[in-house]
Each structure stands twice: as C-alpha cells, then as structure tokens.
C-alpha cells in the first residue's frame, strides 16, 4: 500500500453530469476555493464529457466551460487545475485553449480498448508542460491483460500516470484488485482509480485499489456524479485517515466544502435508485442515466428497459445518441 494517496476531486467534472451541466460561475468559485483550501491534489473541471463536451448529445453547458475554467483558476492557490478530454469529442486545439485559461493537468480518456486514439493528445499535453494522465473508461469491459496492453501505450507516450475508470459502477472489489495489481506490478508509472457507486461499491472499490498500490483516487463531494455518483471524497478521506494513510487533505475543510457549497446546490439527493442500480447491474455507462430517463418519458417507456437494451448492445461511453435509437426501436416493437 502507498504511504501517500493523492486525491483528485472531480465534483466540478463528473458532478457536472448530475447538475445537467448547469454549474454557475459563483458555484465554481466557491467549490474550487474550498477544495483548494482543503488540499486536494487536483481539482478537475469541465463538462462531464470533457472539454468541448457541450452539445445536443450530452447536454449544453449553461455557462461556457472555458469561462468556468477561468473562474476556478482565479481562486486556486495550491492545487493543480485539471480537465478531462475525450478524443473524438475534444481536440488538441480545445486542450490548448483550456491551458490558456489555466488548466495545468489533463486526463485524456478513451474506451478501455482504444487507447491509441489518445497518443497525439498525450504527447501534445506533455509538450505544453501539463501533468498528463491516460484514462481508460469502462474497464469492466476488458480483461486485466488487455488493460495492461492499453496502459502501456499511455506509458510509452509519456503519460504521468494511468487512471482506470469503472464508468458503469459494475466492478466488485476483487475485479478492481485484479486490474490494479497487474498494472502497479508491470508499469513504471503510477496507477489511479475512478469509481461509480451504482452497486454501492465506490468506497470499497477505491479502497481495494489503494490496497493494490494505486496512488491516485478520484472522488466528489457528496458523491456528486453520473449515475449513483462517485466515491464520496470526504468519506474516503476519513477512511484513509483511519488507516493512517497520508493524503495531505484537511478533512474538516473538505467536509465544510461538501456541506456548505455542494449539498445546497444539488438537484436531487445522490442515492442509488432503481435506475442507477440498473446501470451497475447491466454494465452501462453512468452518464446515460438522465438521458435515458428523458427518453423514457418522451417515448412512454421504462428507463430500466432502455438501459438494459443499451447494455445488451454493448454501447460504450459517449453513445448517448443511441438512447434515442433504442427508445425509438422499443416504442415501435
């Protein structure tokens, strides 16, 4: 187990899904300032689907992402300001603009089997002097050996660490152990983990990752995130403190930010409701949840039926457009 764990707060990125991309300038300033004071290593901000994710498909950002990045940058003193970029959605040009607005850490995300589409972005980010991670989504869809192969592409391209994301909240702790332990054993760069709580395993899975040598763990205040949300960062910080594991995070300040800045603005409680559970059960990308709910309403269907069909079809992150396709086909059958 690592003696020091770096916590990455992604309330302002994954939480953006749960907020339907409606964060305001003021909310961003308050949350970023609180997280910075609490001492998290990286504060990630951007549309839930990364820089340039604002779209019909994923939902438009109410305030332009680049302006929110500037707001966050204006209040941060210690932490690195981070952003997510999904090649195929955002481009190197978008990443450069984010850098000019104050982003200094970027995570380049691809589906777990498609790491090679990100190599040009990783190299470009490194050449700009950014802290750069390769980020594999939907890691439940590949075996540990395949994941290692993909992670090595990131390593060879110069990534500073590799992050595994259980985007569907599908994994059980042993599944996490197998994936993380192989990577920490074979790679020369650190490994991180990003959980979703659809089966109630977010903290347990993150802990399993830490026990297998992961150095970076993602979390969000109050668990705010896609589906049933992420690993609740204040809970995880407390857990690590109990285990006498250093994070450099002040729990009291973090709790204050979660309670005073995040909880009051949440659009709904971050619980594991039936539909969120179904994401984890069927292995479906967590951010499909709210889009599927809207499609269910539009076509007079059950959200769970749409989600199950998406899982059966093997849809991957970013395929929100297929929710409409599935709903249309189901409504005709």
């Amino acid at each position: 187990m690592k003696d020091r764990i770096r916590l990455i707060d992604t309330t302002l990125r994954d939480g953006s899904h749960a907020m339907s991309h409606s964060f305001t300038r003021e909310q961003v300033r308050n949350i970023a300032a609180g997280l910075d004071e609490a001492g998290v290593a990286i504060i990630e901000i951007s549309h839930g689907d990364g820089i340039a994710g604002s779209s019909i498909n994923y939902g438009f950002s109410e305030t332009p992402d680049m302006e929110l990045i500037e707001e966050a940058a204006s209040v941060i003193k210690r932490a690195r300001l981070g952003a997510l970029l999904i090649p195929g959605i955002g481009t190197i040009a978008d990443m450069k603009e984010a850098y000019h607005r104050g982003v200094r850490a970027v995570r380049i995300a691809t589906h777990v089997t498609e790491a090679d589409v990100s190599l040009q972005h990783i190299k470009a980010a490194k050449s700009m002097g950014m802290f750069t991670a390769g980020f594999l989504m939907m890691v439940h869809m590949a075996k540990p050996e395949q994941i290692l192969e993909q992670a090595r592409l990131f390593e060879d391209a110069g990534a500073d660490y590799v992050n595994l994301a259980d985007s569907a909240g599908y994994l059980l702790p042993d599944d996490v152990r197998r994936r993380v332990s192989l990577l920490t054993e074979k790679l020369s760069i650190p490994v991180g983990f990003h959980a979703h709580n659809n089966l109630g395993m977010a903290a347990a899975n993150s802990l399993a990752a830490v026990e297998e040598g992961a150095s970076y763990i993602d979390g969000t205040c109050r668990g705010l995130g896609a589906g049933a949300g992420n690993c609740q960062i204040e809970v995880f910080t407390a857990l690590l403190e109990r285990m006498e594991c250093q994070t450099g995070v002040n729990l009291e300040k973090l709790l204050q930010t979660a309670e005073e800045q995040v909880e009051p603005i949440m659009l709904r409680p971050q619980t594991i409701d039936t539909d969120a559970l179904m994401l984890g059960y069927a292995g479906v990308y967590s951010s499909f949840l709210l889009h599927a709910r809207r499609a269910a309403e539009q076509f007079g269907l059950k959200t769970g039926d749409i989600l199950k069909e998406l899982g059966r079809r093997g849809m991957v992150g970013g395929q929100e457009d297929m929710i409409v396709d599935v709903a249309y086909q189901l409504s005709k059958s």
Binding site: G88, H111, R313, G314, V316, M322
Partner: peptide, 15 residues
Amino acid sequence: AIIILNPAEPPLMMT
C-alpha cells in the same frame, strides 16, 4: 462532429 469507436463483437454497423 463527434466520433466514437465501439469494439463490440460482432462488429456493429456504422451508425
């Protein structure tokens, strides 16, 4: 424009 690569087997038709 957005492009997504999907590794499902058997391979999916382009949508």
